[in-house]
């Protein structure tokens, strides 16, 4: 791990112990993130990308449990921390933004309440001071008439404005890391572009690392420095965003890129990866992608190890594409 890393995750495993069996939602996930760096965590629904985010926050609900691995955050081992220490970490050093701001902001509390409580949960400040900081945070994310809007309720904002409020809440305590779980999925494309742009500027300005969880490769392409592609609980490929998108190694990454609408000619059918995402329940040994993979053979019945291709670039595949452009 590089010495200057903000966050380093090694071999993280989060399993769900259901009645039907163990679901390995996150299975041996490793990555690291430097201050100010933006990482895109890409995958289909159910690939374990959100669970990875919740594992970092320490918010995996039963029957799920982090069963292995190490999370070093600013040099501290999160697993060794007490619940109270984790709580103090959340919302201050490590903030979160969720997908649908209409669902994540409490409908019956004023924005002011929801912002001020986030500050007061982490530091002893006079209310007036916390209020002033909340106004400043709203102004920072471009909410006009911030002082008046503070006394409004979530339903009185538009979708884009609500997500800006959530971003302002995330920024309140100047975090070192923001975990954003599909924060623009519920928004219009134009609003999405604005928010992406602003998030990038805000993080670069403050040295905050950002994990952007999404299923949308085009978002990652414009926003992130690094990318991790997840499939069935594992990171199948990771590296610099341009390298991965220009020269994907893993057949799954290649399939994802090929299925982007912008890459097809008008009138031409979109490429689809054949088959369906496998059920994580009782997923056996071997590469989880092998049933859908054009390159699979008998060797894929074993699990491919995470192979380091170059500095910061890994791939889990026995038959990677070698350097051909996508």
């Amino acid at each position: 791990m590089s010495a200057g890393s903000n966050l380093s995750v090694e071999g993280l495993r989060t399993h769900f112990f259901t009645k039907a069996g163990v679901v390995k939602a996150v299975d041996d996930v490793s990555f690291s993130l430097a201050p100010g760096e933006v990482m895109g965590l890409v995958g289909e629904s159910g690939s374990g990308k959100s669970v990875t985010g919740f594992s970092l926050l320490g918010l995996v609900d039963a029957p799920g449990k982090v069963v292995g691995g190490r999370i070093l955050f600013k040099g501290q081992d999160l697993a060794a921390m007490s619940d109270e220490q984790r709580r103090r970490m959340r919302g201050s050093r490590m903030a979160a933004i969720f997908q649908d701001p209409l669902m994540t902001l409490n409908p019956v509390l004023r924005i002011e309440t929801q912002m001020v409580e986030t500050i007061l949960a982490h530091q002893a400040l006079p209310r007036a001071e916390a209020r002033k900081r909340s106004i400043a945070a709203l102004e920072r994310v471009g909410i006009p008439a911030a002082e008046e809007r503070l006394s409004a309720y979530p339903h009185q904002f538009s979708g884009g404005m609500r997500q800006r409020v959530c971003i302002a809440i995330a920024l309140l305590n100047d975090p070192d890391l923001i975990i954003a779980d599909e924060p623009t999925t519920a928004l219009d494309v134009t609003i999405q572009a604005q928010i992406l742009h602003e998030m990038r500027a805000l993080c670069a300005g403050s040295g905050t690392s950002l994990i952007w969880i999404t299923h949308d490769l085009s978002v990652v392409a414009g926003l992130a420095d690094k990318i991790c592609v997840m499939y069935a609980g594992r990171i199948v490929e990771r590296g610099d965003v341009d390298e991965v998108l220009d020269r994907p190694l893993h057949p799954y990454t290649r399939g994802l890129i090929a299925s982007l609408p912008s890459r097809s000619e008008r009138g031409q059918a979109l490429y689809q990866i054949p088959g369906m995402t496998p059920s994580l329940l009782g997923l056996g040994e071997g590469c989880a992608f092998r049933d859908r993979c054009p390159r699979a053979d008998a060797s894929c019945l074993d699990s491919p190890p995470e192979r380091v291709v170059s500095e910061g670039r890994t791939c889990r595949c026995f038959h990677p594409h070698e350097g051909e452009p996508s």
Partner: peptide, 16 residues
């Protein structure tokens, strides 16, 4: 609900 999960993610104390 998501907003309770979000409240936890903000690091609020359980009582609150």
């Amino acid at each position: 609900s998501d907003y309770v999960k979000y409240a936890k993610a903000k690091g609020l104390r359980n009582g609150r």
